[in-house]
């Protein structure tokens, strides 16, 4: 295999590459945020109308710690009762698995092609 001679990259082209990479990065973080699709929020499924420590399911020791932290049953209501929702659909799970596996397969295949080049040039041209 012929020795590969990479082209010299101009300053402007280097700058463009950096801008592309930074834009993609910031996009990956902020696009889900802007679309309000990010994160899992907790919700209170069944609020208690007149909260007491007992109604919130707290025993004496637990209530005492909450009071030491400066909470009342009213102010601790949302904190104590909010729960995550872990329900999911099988199709969403399948999509995730396919995306992850496809990503690694794609990467390993391209890497392998490039790697054979590297080894050939490194060890065959001496």
């Amino acid at each position: 295999m012929a020795h590969y001679k990479p082209p010299v990259q101009s300053k402007v082209s280097q700058l463009i590459d950096v801008i592309v990479l930074v834009t993609l990065t910031v996009g990956a973080l902020f696009v889900p945020l802007w679309l309000h699709m990010a994160g899992s929020s907790k919700t209170v499924a069944s609020p208690v109308a007149t909260p007491t420590w007992e109604a919130l399911g707290q025993n004496a020791a637990q209530a005492k710690q909450y009071e030491a932290l400066g909470y009342t049953p009213e102010s601790a209501h949302d904190l104590i009762l909010a729960r995550f929702d872990y329900s999911f659909t099988v199709s969403a799970l399948v999509v995730m698995i396919v995306v992850i596996v496809a990503y690694y397969v794609l990467m390993l295949r391209f890497s392998e092609v490039e790697y054979r080049d590297v080894i050939a040039e490194k060890f065959d041209e001496k």
Binding site: A28, P32, A38, F84, F88, L93, V95, L106
Partner: peptide, 18 residues
């Protein structure tokens, strides 16, 4: 996936593009 499935897919999408 249970909590942040969207980010997971967004993130891997990003890595596929780069």
């Amino acid at each position: 996936f249970l909590g942040y499935g969207t980010q997971l897919v967004a993130m891997i999408g990003f890595y596929i593009v780069v």
